[in-house]
Design a protein around this nucleic acid. Structure first.
Length: 289
DNA sequence: TATTCGTGGGG
DNA sequence: TCCCCAAGAAT
């Protein structure tokens, strides 16, 4: 029987939680949903201003669904992975059409929406509706890997992660939601990937990794590919041009015309069209209408 | 299941 | 200067 992580996590979170917009009382399920889309692989500090703009312009799923996808891609700005803007627009349409414009509460219904996976579905059910589910992101996986398994880094994401977090959750719905948030928060600000601040950790006394003397147990995660010179960089350059262009449109041959690798330029444009992020009409490229 | 998909701040 | 890292999901 391992230590009960819930009490120290709850106490620590009460005193140390950051004051983030989506944690405000009554922020709403739509706001939570949008924030979770934006936070998929994008740092908190970059999300906050874009989230504010987004919710001001589109206060409901139906409002977003009524706008062209191009506007969503443009307002996504520099958040990265712009397919998420398209997926969020699609999810809003699905919510309008299948759920009367109300963000669903059921995890399976959430999972059926475009762009929502294991993490986001449960994050919405828990943080927007207060239900009891395991919410497992990369922060939580790292906290569990260290505190419970005594490893320096988490392994590959697995369905077993959900069961592992469930074992940590208290029976009460509200307490469980706090523990979910606290584990993520701890991983984000204390139990960080590099240079963890163990002296400030509420789990230090029970942490298996600490007890074992902080062994380096390896890192199963794959290194990120180099960005400079990548197709991703070329795609990003194309979208940057179109976001700034009048009517989100420009003559096809003029878009990043001086890109060093012409084949890569063509590949980038073609893949953007395949993804639905760009449309080609009569010799022009534009964001999706 | 391994790969692919942006962008920018910080060590 | 690089490289690491960031509330993942789709294919």
């Amino acid at each position: 029987m391992s230590a009960d992580l819930a009490p120290p996590l709850i106490a620590w979170y009460r005193d140390n939680a950051r004051d983030l917009p989506w944690r405000a009382e009554g922020f709403g399920a739509w706001g939570i949903l949008v924030s979770e889309f934006m936070l998929q692989q994008t740092p908190v500090a970059r999300v906050i201003p874009r989230l504010t703009e987004w919710l001001q312009r589109w206060p409901t799923p139906a409002a977003l669904a009524a706008s062209p996808p191009a506007d969503a891609v443009r307002l996504w700005a520099n958040l990265g992975y712009p397919r998420r803007a398209l997926w969020l627009h699609r999810a809003a349409t699905e919510i309008r059409d299948r759920h009367d414009g109300v963000v669903p509460r059921d995890v399976d219904a959430l999972l059926a929406l475009t762009g929502i996976g294991d993490y986001t579905a449960r994050a919405v059910a828990v943080f927007a509706y207060g239900d009891r589910h395991p919410v497992v992101d990369t922060n939580t996986r790292r906290v569990l890997a260290r505190a419970v398994d005594g490893r320096s880094q988490p392994g590959q994401p697995a369905t077993a992660d959900l069961a592992a977090m469930t074992r940590v959750l208290p029976a009460d719905d509200t307490d469980a939601a706090v523990v979910n948030a606290a584990a993520m928060e701890l991983g984000a600000v204390v139990c960080t990937a590099r240079s963890p601040r163990c002296e400030a950790c509420p789990l230090a006394a029970v942490c298996a990794w600490r007890a074992a003397g902080y062994p380096d147990t390896g890192d199963a995660r794959r290194r990120q590919a180099r960005y400079e010179g990548s197709d991703r960089q070329a795609r990003g350059a194309v979208l940057k041009v179109l976001r700034a262009a009048p009517d989100h449109s420009a003559a096809a041959e003029e878009v990043i015309a001086e890109w060093p690798d012409p084949l890569q330029r063509t590949r980038a444009i073609d893949s953007l069209i395949t993804d639905g992020l760009v449309e080609a009409t009569g010799g022009a490229l534009h964001l999706p209408r």
